[in-house]
């Protein structure tokens, strides 16, 4: 789907956010990006989305489509408080000039996909955090994106809601063969969701491990208690602490 080759990113203030960063995202899979906070995870997503520019290296899209419809889900739901659910979800279509009738069809489809039927006319303030995030995901899906970038989308939610949204995301990904790059700082979430977990270290941001999670996909809640899941979590955790120990050693 896309490849980042030897990407480096230095911010204007001199912060080296990424150095020799390499990543390939396979189509139709979920790739998790884990790492300590400040290691450059968001920077990677911003570069891929075009919101930020890379300083060195290359970003290569492998399919021949000239336009990559990408959608971005932020940590906060980032909804327009003055607009109803239906208007929030419709926003990307409105901005790209999709005719109203066609747009509304796709909007109700997306709203159904995230399980928010019946809440079309509701304002965001009347929704719980989990439901707001669902609206945010619907707004991303409505453009039929070729790649979905998610930046710690469930980080602010409670454990129960998070688990439920993880499950629904897996179902959606499987049904539509979505390509997802999922940033999280939760090791469990990363392993549970992903086909592949990419572990990052900070200062400068780089990949320290790339672990294929070879368990059947999509997964069900039982997987969380399996030995395999625990083994993968331990492996990722080990890589993370090794990387953090290393950067700690560098700092000392």
């Amino acid at each position: 789907m896309l490849t980042l080759e030897h990407v480096g990113k230095t911010y204007a203030n001199g912060t080296v956010a990424l150095h020799d960063f390499n990543l390939t995202v396979q189509p139709g899979t979920i790739t998790s990006l884990v790492g300590p906070s400040g290691c450059g995870k968001s920077t990677v997503l911003r570069i891929i989305s075009g919101l930020g520019h890379l300083s060195t290296g290359r970003l290569i899209w492998q399919d021949n489509q000239p336009l990559h419809r990408l959608a971005y889900v932020f940590q906060e739901a980032a909804l327009m408080p003055w607009a109803t659910v239906i208007d929030n979800v419709r926003l990307p279509l409105k901005l790209s000039g999709v005719p109203k009738r066609q747009a509304l069809e796709r909007v109700s489809e997306a709203i159904a996909q995230v399980g928010l039927e019946g809440f079309e006319r509701v304002y965001p303030r009347e929704l719980s955090g989990g439901m707001r995030m669902r609206v945010s995901i619907a707004r991303a899906l409505v453009t039929h994106p070729t790649i979905l970038l998610m930046d710690e989308p469930f980080g602010a939610l409670d454990e129960m809601t998070r688990g439920k949204l993880n499950q629904d995301l897996l179902t959606l990904q499987h049904q539509q063969q979505l390509t997802i790059l999922f940033v999280t700082h939760s090791i469990y979430e990363a392993v549970y969701l992903a086909h592949r977990v990419v572990v990052m270290a900070s200062q400068p941001g780089r990949v320290v491990a790339d672990i294929a999670i070879d368990s059947p996909h999509p997964r069900d809640p039982d997987y969380r208690t399996s030995a395999q899941f625990n083994r993968y979590c331990r492996e990722v955790s080990h890589c993370l602490s090794a990387a953090m120990g290393e950067s700690l050693a560098l700092a000392l």
Binding site: G50, A78, A83
Partner: peptide, 25 residues
């Protein structure tokens, strides 16, 4: 909201759309 501003950018909203649908409300 900075995230909303980014969302508008990602969807290639023009100045007028950003004003009409984001800044004014």
């Amino acid at each position: 909201d900075p995230s909303l501003v980014n969302l508008f950018k990602l969807n290639r909203a023009n100045r007028w759309q950003t004003l009409r649908y984001l800044r004014l409300p």
